[in-house]
Design a protein around this nucleic acid. Sequence first.
DNA 1: TGTCCTTTGAAGTCT
DNA 2: AGACTTCAAAGGACA
Length: 409
Amino acid sequence: MPQLSSGGGDDLGANDEMISFKDEGEQEEKIQENAFTERDLADLKSSLVNESEINQSPNAAAVRRGQQGEQRGFPDKHREHLDVVSKQQDGGMYKSPGYPGYPFLMLPDPYLPNSSVSPSSNKVSVVQQSHGMHPLTSLLPYSNDHFSPSSPHLPTDMSQKTGVHRHQSQDLSGYYSLPPGGVSQITPSMSWQSQPVYPALSPCGFRQPYPSNLPSASSYSRFSHSLMLGPSGMHPTGIPHPAIVPPTGKQDHEQYDRSMYVKPQMEPKREKEPKKPVIKKPLNAFMLYMKEMRAKVIAECTLKESAAINQILGRRWHALTREEQAKYYELARKERQLHMQLYPTWSARDNYEAGLSGVAGEKNKADWGKKKRRKREKQQDSNTDPGSPKKCRARFGLNQQTDWCGPCR
DNA sequence: TGTCCTTTGAAGTCT
DNA sequence: AGACTTCAAAGGACA
């Protein structure tokens, strides 16, 4: 079970899926995958390219059916390696001494002198580093990358000034390595010198591993967004969080990956009308996995189309072992925790109408209604078409993770 | 320029 | 309670 939270009851999602995953014949898969060769990989690569083309057609589902067997045994070289690693680690990531690098196993090889702890031990960066991002930032979007160490003049205890009660938790620094002007206010014991800003990692390339006792977010008092967010989309702690779309202009830390949290199509309108900052949802486990593996899939399969890539990633996700998936569930859990701490009053509902709350107001409301209608109609259409395995499973009431309905097989 | 595609999971809404 | 819906990322394709 990926109930990784140590008795905290914190949801990690997809419990049923993880259970059933075990039933799926994991051992067989492992054996099969270990038997894959480079040639298999090449074959698969070409088949995936073909598939991506075929999938555009209405017969895509049928094609997928034919490929299902192949998909189930996708040759992940890194899994082979992980099996070894997991053996070395004797029990996986949740025994902290046995998993010392977590989550810094996510560091790309250059930062892993001994990269044996990486989930993807191959040469491809585990973490997508596009847009000059910190290798961890894509997984840990609240990293100090978004801050400049040259701004140490920020108030040292803003949370007190604003009346926001913050636990003095070192954990946050360990999780997300937030800056002095940022969560250091939450964690006064932290200084930015001790939290090196990328790329100045510690000599060994590791930072502090995730501690396991992140304080419950529920312990934080919840304030309205008006308190949480400053006039420029800044957290009252002074953290220019990437999840926030500032209402005016560009953020100072332009070099960082704002796009991760900013809907690009909204940017041009920002100048015209002041817009409520949009705080994006924290990424779930699969999204984190996608961010990490996308580049690898692109490189392997010479694909660019995200839809096709995502299909592949979806299958790979299913092919992961419980332990491998657990890493991402844990990361996602921490993401949610930190997100909750940074934006206590934020709700996913805010972004249900994200378009509405912002620039376009009424127009977007109308669009949203249309969108909903379209989707509903589409859904009805798809009821007559097996469509994706997910839809198919849903239709037949099968287990989401493991059961493959006839048409999808 | 905006939307769709495609995936899974989290969280919200609806019945 | 369970089903359904939306949104997170990504970038090419298309209207």
